[in-house]
Nucleic acid binder design. Structure first.
Lengths: 210, 210
DNA sequence: CGTAGGTTTGACCGTTTGGTCAAATTGTCA
DNA sequence: TGACAATTTGACCAAACGGTCAAACCTACG
């Protein structure tokens, strides 16, 4: 019966058609949620974007919120990955510049994911606050310890590691979340990520070099 | 008749009651729009927050969009002011640190305005893109010329003035727009703006000192 | 006072919204 | 092929939505 739909939420889809439509729906939902926010998006919109009828879409995801949660939880993994890759055995400045670079690449290649995340945080993170307070916090704590060691060893100019990470987040995500504004001010209509990368490299090199 | 309501949109309200309810509605709308976005906010919500009945609210603002536009246009003025205050006769580094400081104060004192703006940009700036392409762009152009002169004169370390301004925007607004995330990671639940100010001062001092 | 204009409200309307359901269609596999 | 499960759909529903309107209510001011 409709237990099928519920099973898919906890377990990966099984049939060929399920896999296809599952992906189709998440792709469409990402497009709609990222530009209109949760409450601003409609199920009809998502269904139309996915090329499915509304009842058909609701056959795969029982509610609008289910889709949103699925998107967010999938996002959190990809979101933490670049920071996890910060390597204790690497050269400190290069490691942090690399992290900045990976985050900027994500802004360039996955701006919708960035805006989806921004929307969620702007609204007070009603659905992912617990994950921020545990998963994200633990990861940041660990990496800040590492950064602090680098600073203590004189390999990085001293500063608050937490705020240093915040600055990497904000500077890189700005080019995705506020891309429209950047484009409007530069008169180009879109972000030049090569330019942004050069500036951020200069920026953090000055900031981090002891 | 209801020409009154239309007049109020172009001219400031006249009677005592009009002034009071006008302010009441904008305050309530700021609260609701800034957390739910335009489409996510409902007129009933705004009316309830303002302590007015829905028809009464619509007596002062003909449509939901009218309220939103009123909020945004009022915001744009306050938004440009700190950058306008950048003084060509001041000491370059102190001037830019001062601008950063004013922007950070706005994040601390007017986080809802910051989130309202962020929501609008995230959704592609459908209502204020023209203003960004003219007012904001002209202002930024002018100030970037000034900054470039400072750099050419060796009073500031050279970098791209436009991206330098973007970095001030993103680093300061981050503490308002992503305040929930910052609080969750630090475990404090809220942003310590004194800490943030110290870090950003250090950050930009290193970035700007020739 | 009184009355004219400003203000407030309950009842209402058409549309959109998230979601349901039985029936029809399609896919799978023995 | 047949038969059972998986998929798709049109019709539908209750609630929420933005907005309207006439009538009732205030309030300033001569």
């Amino acid at each position: 019966m409709n237990e099928t739909a519920k099973l898919e939420l906890t377990q990966p889809p099984k049939t060929r058609i399920q896999r296809k439509n599952h992906a189709l729906i998440l792709e469409a939902a990402l497009e709609v949620f990222s530009t209109h926010g949760f409450r601003g998006a409609t199920v009809d919109q998502i269904a139309a974007q996915a090329g499915l009828s509304k009842p058909n879409l609701l056959y795969y995801f029982a509610t609008k919120e289910t889709i949103h949660v699925a998107l967010l939880s999938r996002l959190m993994e990809n979101w933490l990955a670049p920071l996890e890759a910060l390597n204790a055995d690497g050269a400190p400045i290069e490691e942090l510049l690399g992290y900045m670079h990976r985050k900027l690449e994500m802004s360039r290649d996955y701006p919708r994911e960035s805006r989806l995340f921004a929307n969620e945080i702007l609204q007070g993170a009603p659905r992912i606050l617990p994950s921020l307070e545990t998963d994200l916090r633990n990861l940041v704590d660990a990496k800040c310890l590492l950064i602090q060691r680098w600073m203590d060893a004189g390999q990085l100019a001293p500063s608050d590691p937490y705020h240093l990470i915040f600055s990497i987040w904000s500077l890189t995500q700005h080019y995705a979340d506020f891309g429209v504004q950047v484009g409007a001010v530069l008169g180009t209509g879109a972000v030049d990520f090569e330019q942004a990368h050069q500036h951020l490299t200069l920026h953090f090199t000055r900031m981090l070099t002891p």
